[in-house]
Design a protein around this nucleic acid. Structure first.
Length: 807
RNA sequence: GCGGACGUGGCGGAAUGGCAGACGCGCCAGACUUAGGAUCUGGUGACCCCGGUCGUAAGAGUUCAAGUCUCUUCGUCCGCACCA
């Protein structure tokens, strides 16, 4: 029977319209059903439109979402827009358009592009972080954080990008450069809003043990949190009442501490200024250091600089000896206590510093040669020159010395984290206004809940000011308001929130996106949370993932969400590179536009190719020819309609095992994110259909069901063309029959001493004992010849290995 | 330096310790065609005396059997980094 040609341009819009009209993929309100929450990182609706990287993540979880529905789950697979952000604002500045309009246009473009790809999103639950009905709740959560003392203002040196005219979080500084524009970041002291994420450092770390995140993500989170265990020890400053507190993870080496180093900003330099003989030189050094960014100061390759603090020394509590104090900018005020004890024999940085300034190096752990290099091996060294520690393994000495110091009353055990509090304010227009009013009498006054959302005012110019103030500061009738507490004239906060704010809780809003009374209802949250499977890019594993877990922990603590962790499972997809292996970018001219792909090969082939091109978690170069290959596969699937023969129920007898194997394999591979091998398996099945020249209805149905999550339009269409009942999205996921996973007869390899000499068909039920017998007969026996058969290994269904020796 | 991932044909990549290279791309040949950037069929790791030999970054080890496990070395990518 001749069939119509395969025309994705015709059938794809047809089914997209059908699903939309019937609200096929809307998450149901029925909380008695088992639920499954699939989440992808909501896109930033940039002017460039959809990138081929978006469909990689979207298709992967679309496959899971569609499969879950076929398995009977009530699935939530939402989409939204992370729409605040600098590119939009910069575009608005350059083109004199309102960023809200830019955002609206971009979102419409993105949505249309996504719809052409047939993702089973519940579009009725779309969220937009720039919508006042959304950011009302972002502001509300901020006020809760403020209320609980987790949002505070602090004078602090921040990372300042002179090009973007914006303060950056540590997380946004990459190799000393602005993550967004690449301009060099400098230091600037400003009053900033901070969020106390460090109070959650331990829980952010511990929680990782309870969730199913891929190793790479867990490792990066741990790395970023940077926990270390050690002691805070007070060193007496000789001849004064002052003590100098240091943090060390290696108290065992204290007998080898021959000097101390202070950060140039250390307050002790002021406190004891009168005893210091070279105050002027130290001040100059501090000024020099202040000009440098943290990156410059901590750059590894740089030669150490430093200056002796003349007139002061400290007492090493282990030896009782006076040791000199130095100042150097490699010691940071922001980590530990801003001062260190230096053990040049067993710390590489201290060793280099001691060498540069000719300070004594004492060996306190044997095993290396401290005249050549610092010996840092804790695991195998033993203590020497260390009084009561002598002879102990270093590992043990850490404990003994810590206890001793604590007993002496000069130290306490201390856990330190590398994680810093989160700089939460931005001096920009296009972000959530911070709902705080500054009153001369009352101080900082939060807006009442009834005054939310605090809307962004209309402004003439979105250009940030050189003074580092947000453009909002210029809108006097917005800025000047009566104090909500006392009614006196007061000023609004003019900083806005960073882009990370809206994305720190959007997964909660999806549960109940139209709620005006709360950010989401308790019932909705209890039912849908936690997210069962979250996929996104590797680039968000230190920033967004940490921030959103922190917000969720906080909301959990104040009783608003039940689940302790927001995401049960987190996977990450690899980047799609240009055909030449470079990152795709306009300037390189290697960008692939999804719309062009859909026009040329259709959405189904495009989706299948994205899943087929390689291991899901790896970066892969795009191949236009490869994409055309999956289009050929679609054509082959389409033409199977012509090959259906007979009306016998069941799979074709010759293919029964292969079909069952494929059902098992594809289901398992989808779950393990091995999409490429799942597609390969289905291609093999189709090849087998073609070799056989015909298929049964059940053969075809099985293939369509397995393929439908990846290529939904063609499968719906063929299903309908064949007159099968209902729609494919409403069918149950197919089951396989354990009894038909292996053929009755299998080919095994016969090896002699590990080399294949023969292949033969044997019954698949053959066990080890039968294998032994096999070796005694026929051609297998001939392989042994007159050599001595030492051993005979039989692996059922795979091989027989004859271990022989010449006589 | 620390942490993570990894190294397999011309290319993307498959392989619970059990026949390396599934599947796809590309390439070669044939069929069908007025035609082919369509479709179908077959072939495609290297070497070779056509019987085999060698092959998964390099080297060693464990094993009847190693791409897979162990050790050493080399290399690539990602994250962090004078973090005390």
């Amino acid at each position: 029977m001749p069939i119509a040609p395969y025309e994705p341009q015709r059938i794809e819009p047809k089914w997209q319209q059908f699903w939309e009209d019937r609200q096929t993929f809307a998450a149901r309100a029925d909380t008695s059903l088992p639920k499954y929450y699939c989440l992808i990182e909501f896109p930033y609706p940039s002017g460039a439109g959809l990138h081929v990287g978006h469909p990689r993540s979207n298709t992967a979880l679309d496959i899971i979402a569609r499969k879950r529905r076929m398995e009977g789950f009530n699935v939530l697979y939402p989409i939204g827009w992370d729409a605040f952000g600098l590119p939009t604002e910069n575009y608005a500045i350059a083109n004199h358009v309102h960023p809200a309009k830019v955002t609206r246009d971009n979102i419409n473009h993105f949505r249309a592009q996504l719809k052409r790809l047939g993702f089973s999103f519940d579009y009725a639950r779309e969220v937009d972080t720039t919508d006042p009905s959304y950011y009302k709740w972002t502001q509300w959560i901020f006020l809760k954080l403020y209320e609980h003392g987790l949002a505070y203002k602090a004078q602090m040196p921040i990372n300042w990008c002179p090009s973007c005219k914006i303060g950056l979080a540590n997380e946004e500084v990459v190799a000393g450069l602005c993550e967004r524009c690449g301009h060099e970041v400098t230091r600037r002291v400003k009053t900033q809003w901070m969020l106390a994420i460090t109070r959650y450092a331990q829980r952010l770390l511990d929680g990782l043990d309870t969730v199913d995140f891929i190793d790479r993500v867990k490792a990066q989170q741990r790395n970023w949190i940077g926990r270390s265990e050690g002691c805070e020890v007070d060193f007496q400053v000789a001849g004064t009442q002052e003590t100098l507190r240091v943090y060390t993870t290696r108290p065992d080496t204290m007998f080898g501490a021959t000097y101390m180093v202070l950060s140039p900003e250390h307050p002790l330099l002021d406190t004891l200024a009168s005893s210091i003989h070279n105050r002027e030189a130290l001040r100059e050094y501090a000024e020099q250091a202040a000009l440098k960014s943290d990156f410059e100061r901590t750059e590894l390759a740089r030669d150490k600089s430093g200056l002796r603090v003349e007139g002061l020394s400290a007492i090493n509590p282990a030896t009782g000896q006076a040791i000199p104090l130095w100042v150097s900018d490699y010691v940071l005020m922001g980590y530990g206590t801003g001062a260190i004890m230096a053990v040049p024999g067993h710390d590489q940085r201290d060793w280099e510093f001691a060498r540069a300034f000719d300070l004594p190096i004492v060996e306190v752990i044997s095993g290396g040669d401290v005249s050549q290099a610092a010996y840092t091996d804790v695991a195998s060294g033993r203590m020497v020159n260390s009084g009561f520690l002598n002879g102990l393994p270093a590992q043990e000495a850490i404990e003994v010395m810590s206890d001793w110091l604590v007993d002496q009353g000069i130290a306490q055990r201390k856990v330190n984290f590398r994680l810093r509090d989160w700089v939460f304010s931005r001096q920009r227009y296009w972000g959530e206004p911070i709902p705080i009013v500054h009153c001369e009498d009352c101080g900082m006054v939060p807006l009442g809940e009834d005054q939310l959302p605090l809307l962004l005012p209309e402004v003439e110019s979105y250009q940030p000011t050189d003074s580092g103030e947000s453009p909002l500061a210029a809108i006097t009738d917005w800025v000047n308001v009566p104090c909500p507490a006392c009614g006196k004239p007061a000023r609004r906060e003019t900083d806005t929130m960073p882009q990370w704010a809206g994305s720190s809780w959007y997964f909660l809003r999806y549960c109940d996106p139209h709620n005006d009374e709360a950010f989401a209802s308790q019932e909705a949250l209890d039912y849908w949370m936690p997210v069962d499977w979250y996929n996104g890019g590797m680039e968000h594993t230190t920033l967004h993932l940490l921030y959103s877990r922190f917000w969720h922990f906080f909301l959990h603590d104040i009783g608003l969400v039940k689940a302790p962790e927001p995401y049960q499972k987190r996977t990450s997809h690899g980047m799609i590179l240009g055909e030449n292996g470079d990152k795709m970018s306009k300037s390189r001219g290697n960008v692939i536009n999804p719309d062009d792909l859909v026009d040329e090969i259709g959405a189904d082939a495009f989706r299948v190719y994205e899943m087929f091109l390689g291991a899901f978690d790896q970066a892969i170069p795009w191949s236009m020819n490869g994409a055309r290959g999956t289009r050929r596969f679609m054509e082959r699937v389409w033409r199977l309609q012509e090959m259906v023969r007979g009306d016998q129920p069941g799979f074709s007898p010759a293919l029964r095992v292969l079909v069952n194997q494929t059902i098992k394999r594809v289901g398992e591979d989808y779950e393990r994110m091995k999409f490429n091998t799942a597609i390969a398996q289905m291609m093999s099945l189709v090849n087998a259909f073609y070799e056989q020249g015909q298929v049964s209805h059940d053969d075809l149905r099985a293939l369509l069901l397995l393929l439908s999550p990846a290529a939904p339009h063609i499968c719906e269409e063929v299903w309908q063309q064949m007159g099968y009942p209902g729609y494919i999205h409403g069918q149950a996921w197919p089951a396989y029959d354990e009894a038909y996973l292996v053929e009755d007869e299998v080919e095994i390899a016969v090896q002699v001493n590990g080399k294949v000499r023969l292949r033969m068909m044997v019954p698949s039920g053959l066990r080890a004992q039968d294998g032994q017998e096999l070796a005694q007969r026929g051609e297998v026996r001939d392989l042994v010849g007159d050599r001595q058969l030492l051993k005979c290994i039989f692996v059922p269904g795979r091989l027989l290995n004859l271990v022989v020796r010449d006589r």
